[in-house]
Simulated assay, not measured.
Amino acid sequence: MKTIHKKNTTFLNLAAAALMVAALVLGCKPNVSNGGEVQPPVTDGCTITMSAGANGSITASPVIPAGGKVAKGAEITFTATANPGYRVDTWMVTPTKALTADGQQGDAIAKVKVTANTTVNVTFKPIVYTPVAYADLHNHLTTAQPETNGIYYIEITGLTAPDVTGNSIRDSASPLGQILNSNRQKKVALKFGAIAGVTDMSSCFNGCTSLVQVSDIPNSVTDMYSCFKGCTKLEHVPNIPNSVTDMHSCFYGCTKLEHVPNIPDGVTDMYSCFEDCTSLTSVTLKCEYLDGKFHYAFYDCSRLSTGSIKVPADSLDDYKDNADKMKAEAEWFAKDE
């Protein structure tokens, strides 16, 4: 009986030792979660997820690869684009320490440094414009307070055709533009009321560095020569009316402008239209190419790339053959589907 007792004791000791070894091995397994499942360690980067609420979109630069994983320490700039009639409201970045710059209420951009799994979300809200009579505009800009994002959203009333017509020969802004130029430290988003009989908006906002957005333009306009020339803070422009024919130097020097609405098919002059638009990434031209009228249209548009300029199918060869005159690359042009 003693012999049997020793064998049992030896067996129990060996079993206990085995259990101890197993406990030590299991104790080294990392990140146990999901109801006890063992999650493998992340060895190929951090996961980043971005999303946008209704009435807008979000993009990332550099582009997040398929699968959503980026190298630890990657720095990404997120850009929110609101639909017409809306503006950026709030950003939510998790973890909060990932946000390194911007990303405050109303900001169009949020800069993030990824050191752990990260989520980025942006929401949008309707723009509420304050009605302001043209005669009171200067007083409003000097006494009223802007929105939380520092922008004055103004629906301007009482305008007449001469108020929005500048002098393209003298390269000077319209009376409306001159009011904005006297408040250069401000940021202004404008919405027009009705303007009877206006056809000429040449140089309207010439040099208006306070202008960040215009929501609409009268449908009777034909001349937009230098209309937004030198508006270096301009980010959003309205749909171009189908009546427009002259867009010579229209957006010259609009260095923050990334996208523009379609250029109507009736446009016959685009000389230097987008010259020095260094942020422009895409544009669709519905108009045919006219030799001598489109020179320098894309001079110094350094962010345009292959296929980023859509043109009518029957004019594609003309655009490609004359790319050098427009200071573009032939491969930038592609058929508008």
Rank of each mutant, 00 (worst) to 15 (best):
K256C: 06
T255L: 09
G166D: 02
G197A: 11
N322I: 09
T90D: 12
M92V: 13
V120W: 08
K69C: 10
D246E: 07
A98F: 05
A313W: 01
T255Q: 09
Y134A: 03
G36Y: 05
G53L: 01
V311S: 04
I169M: 09
I240V: 14
G103I: 05
T79W: 03
A17D: 03
T157G: 08
D216V: 11
Q178Y: 06
T90E: 13
L190E: 04
P95Q: 04
I64Y: 10
L176Y: 09
C287N: 15
G253T: 05
T96F: 13
P146S: 11
V32G: 09
V198C: 00
N34I: 07
K29P: 03
G177V: 06
N8Q: 10
S305H: 15
I109W: 05
D136Y: 07
S182R: 08
R303S: 09
Y225P: 02
E235L: 08
V164K: 01
M270A: 01
T281W: 01
V260A: 00
H259N: 05
A196Y: 14
M326T: 11
R87E: 15
F124S: 06
E275L: 10
V32Q: 13
I154G: 09
D216E: 10
L290H: 08
A101E: 09
V32F: 13
Q145Y: 15
K229W: 01
Q39G: 08
V267K: 01
K320R: 15
T130Q: 13
D102P: 00
S279F: 04
C301P: 06
A334M: 07
A23D: 14
L234D: 00
R170M: 02
M201V: 12
A194L: 04
N117D: 15
E331V: 11
L24H: 05
M247G: 03
D300I: 05
I263C: 04
S243D: 14
K6L: 10
A330T: 11
K2L: 13
